[in-house]
Design a protein around this nucleic acid. Structure first.
Lengths: 170, 170
DNA sequence: GTATGATCTTGACTTAAGTCAATGCGCGTT
DNA sequence: AACGCGCATTGACTTAAGTCAAGATCATAC
């Protein structure tokens, strides 16, 4: 199948831009990709970080196929790349593939819904603690101001929260 | 097709409980259903309200099929009910159906992702204002303490925010 | 290796939301 | 109609996060 291949990306590479129609989907083998958008006030809002064994953007098919998000590598990364143009053909050729992707999306949907619920109920500090539990390595892999945005707080608050927690643990 | 039918539910009816395996999926024709879960600290966290023309729980298929949420009618409601046990048969009989549900889920996934991003970036007051714009009628349809939980704030804060905003508008 | 700019931290201060407690209101029940 | 209960509002106070501004630190390019 030449529609699926493995590709390396340098840190800083943009997979696709807010406003573009994505032409491919990705699966992270190594590295880290940040998903963000620019909101109405011009602020950058980071909505996710994709790391090893996570799929990107398969589910970002809006009706008009235009993405609200930019995806950018925050580390040198290696990804499986799947061409979206041949997606329909693939489904026709392999009906089980559609069933498989549906199940993947359902699982991811359940996961984002759970994260959302946890996020709603938590204070900024609790959100940081949750991240420490769920994705401990992420905290040291990405720029702190982007992490702050991902956690829905200011960089200053994140800095203070980390300090507060470290003092308790020492 | 006797696997799909229309049913009326009285206010207070529980569609299924946290911990249960859902046996049906629903589409709201009239009324309002609240989705919530009890978190580790025993607090009730409302994660959604489903109203007219919204589908429920089609996407809540976790691998083990057990729901983390309770769904309860907050109004007398009329819904289309689809039996989940026959789901697989239906897909086999009508392959296009799988394609259709996949697209629906993708659309809903994109929507929840967007809501999540908006929520992250917003303060409690901004979240209330967003709700006023996006779902203005919901505010007067549901109990305020549940709405507060849905917006990630205390009932007291919601009350004050509403007061604050009404004073500006008068 | 140094310089430059970005990012992270820290400090002082403001503000909005949380907490706790009391009161008021609405609603359903009897 | 009156009672009782749950819910909503209000008040006083605390606290955590936001804001603004100044340094410190880090990284990247030259």
């Amino acid at each position: 199948m030449d529609e699926i291949y493995i590709e390396e990306f340098k840190k800083g590479t943009v997979l696709f831009q807010q406003g573009d129609s994505p032409t491919a989907c990705y699966f992270v083998l190594k590295g880290c990709v940040r998903q963000y958008s620019i909101d109405v006030e011009g602020r950058e809002v980071t909505s996710n970080f994709y790391t090893e064994e996570q799929a990107i953007a398969v589910f970002d098919h809006k009706p008009d196929k235009i993405s609200n998000y930019t995806f950018i590598c925050v580390e040198d990364s290696v990804m499986v790349v799947g061409d979206l143009n041949t997606e329909k053909d693939m489904y026709n050729k392999h009906p089980q593939l559609e069933s498989m992707t549906r199940k993947m999306i359902e699982a991811d949907f359940a996961k984002i819904q759970e994260e959302f619920a946890a996020f709603i109920a938590a204070s900024p500090e609790e959100r940081f603690r949750l991240l420490q539990l769920k994705r401990p390595t992420l905290i040291d892999r990405v720029p702190q101001h982007q992490l702050a945005s991902y956690l829905g707080m200011t960089p200053e608050s994140l800095s203070r929260i980390k300090k507060r927690i470290n003092q308790l643990n020492s």
